[in-house]
Simulated assay, not measured.
Amino acid sequence: MPLANRSEKGSLANKILKQLPLADKTAVWGTLGTIRPLLSFEVEQDVQSFLDAIAGEAVDYRTITHLLTNRTNRQRQQIAEGFQAFTQQDLLKSLQAAVSGNLETALVGLLKPAAQYDAHEIKLAMKGYWVAHSSYLPGPDGATLAEIFCTRTTQQLREILDFYKHDFKSDLETEVASGPSGCFKDLLLALIKTSREKYSGVIDYVLIEEDAKALVNAGAGYIGRTDERKWIKILAQRSPEHLNRVSLFRGMSSKCSSCIDSSAARKLRDQMPTEGFLSLAVFSLYHKMTGLQIEEAVAKFFQGNAQVGILTLVSVLRNTPLYFAIRLRQAIKGPSACHKTLIRILVSRSETDLLSIRAEFRKQYGMSLYSFIRAETQGQYRDLLLGLCRAEDL
């Protein structure tokens, strides 16, 4: 390949990557979690280390923190199994006897299987939500339910349902369905029941236009007249790429353009500047049709927990790491500060996209998540959170 062509293709790839959120580069750069499998992992050695850490006169918090924040969830499960086999005691219960407060809450999150941890968080949130339910008064329990249901994959939700049934002898879908009626319940049920479509790589311009028009028509009335089910169906079912995508580069060669060729695509591309990106997706077309960003429309047409839930889903579809960065800031410091939320996010994202979240946090607030946690927490609890966060972002 001529050097000039290589340079041109490399330049185009760099331009495209720069336009993508960090989370979308996962396939290019590899995992974006802060915790990765320890290659020299030995179960027996870690079991002994845990025994030494809790058997003495003083608990060795440093060792406990190091072990838990340098092993994946799967490796922690293997340690717990080995500890049970060797001592005939439950590792989590043994650690809980030695710690308390937020540190204990964090240890529970780290030592439970991820889906089981989510199932228990949902159970607690549902109790609070059903008791304090009001269509017009969103609260922390509704936000927790929205966070978990909107950010877990279809497979993860299935695993959560299994753990929920096993641990609580109850069907989660049935419990949600029997709760207070309203749009928020409909959203949760849609997320449980619906398998989100996978992006095939083919841009369906006709469906994009149909969905955008459907959202416009569904939100045509005032609050109370909105066709909420239509909004929920589209947002819960369609692929993120279909709903929100940066997909068409004006400077593409004609050969590349033919890969996504259609009369509609050519017409839209011809309206662009000489070089740049055009977002061909439902959210962008909705904005073009109404003058409203999708978030503005949700705030206009929905209220209370329904608004919180749908805004959460939209935020996740827009930019999942940014959603979590904002939620972390609110959980650490603010009117809705909640250490359970802080712990849940750091634990649940530590093996997937916490590096992306750190990058968005730095961009959004002008300081690193690591520094923020260090300034706002203390003691062994702070050390464990910093172990999950891993490092500064300069």
Rank of each mutant, 00 (worst) to 15 (best):
6 R>Y: 08
19 Q>Y: 05
20 L>A: 10
24 D>P: 02
26 T>W: 04
34 T>A: 11
34 T>W: 08
46 D>M: 11
57 E>H: 13
59 V>A: 10
60 D>P: 10
67 L>D: 06
69 T>S: 14
75 Q>N: 09
76 R>K: 12
99 V>P: 04
99 V>I: 14
101 G>L: 07
105 T>Y: 08
107 L>S: 03
112 K>Q: 13
116 Q>E: 15
121 E>L: 09
124 L>P: 00
128 G>D: 09
133 H>I: 04
133 H>K: 07
152 R>L: 02
154 T>H: 09
159 E>N: 06
162 D>S: 12
175 E>L: 10
181 S>H: 11
182 G>P: 05
187 L>W: 02
192 I>T: 03
192 I>W: 00
194 T>L: 01
195 S>P: 02
198 K>L: 07
199 Y>C: 12
202 V>C: 06
204 D>L: 01
207 L>E: 15
216 V>F: 09
218 A>G: 00
221 G>M: 04
225 R>N: 05
244 N>R: 14
253 S>W: 03
256 C>T: 05
257 S>L: 09
265 A>F: 04
266 R>T: 03
270 D>Y: 04
271 Q>M: 13
319 N>G: 11
325 A>I: 01
337 A>W: 01
337 A>G: 00
340 K>I: 01
341 T>A: 07
361 F>G: 00
379 G>H: 03
388 L>N: 08
388 L>T: 08
394 L>R: 03
